[in-house]
Every structure is written in structure tokens, then in C-alpha cells.
Amino acid sequence: MIALDRVPAGTTARLAEPEPSLASSFRELLAAYGLVPGHLVTVVAQEPMTVVLCDHVELAIERDVAAKLRVDAWSTLRGARPVSA
């Protein structure tokens, strides 16, 4: 399990439960954007912020928040097999 802000750009990752310290307001906001545990997102960029593609919509997430989102499986778009952490 690693934090979303550590996932390299170009990688598809499966979201896990966020860290308990993530504020309630952000949990609700991210759920409204569709970022819920079990959902796949593609990391588009890590600079200047974490940008993920979630169901064809790009979302920019500041590092402080992305560091509290965790992923439990990921794979590169170039066909590598999913890897469990």
C-alpha cells in the first residue's frame, strides 16, 4: 500500500481506504468526485500537483491531500501486470 502522491505518472492504480487523518470534508469531497475505495484512477502528473484521470475527468489534488490517499494495486499503462503492494 502506498500513498497516491508516490505513484508515478502514467500508472493506473486502485484506491484503498484513505488515511484516518484525512479530514472529513475531504472524504466527502473526494467521494463526490468519484474517488472511493476500489475505484481505478490513472495518475496523469505529479507536478505541480497530483493530477488523476477518474472516469475521463481530470482532477488536480494538492500533495497534502494526495499523500493521505492510498492505493493498494497499480500497473503501468504499457501492459505490465497489476502488482499488489
Binding site: F26, L29, L30, Y33, M49, V51, V57, E58, L59, A60, I61, E62, R63, D64, V65
Partner: peptide
């Protein structure tokens, strides 16, 4: 408050 924002195409 940290930024979480949607990027329209």
C-alpha cells in the same frame, strides 16, 4: 484549505 479541483478539457 488545500486545493482539489476538476480540470475541464
Amino acid at each position: 484549505i488545500p486545493l482539489v479541483a476538476e480540470m475541464p478539457p
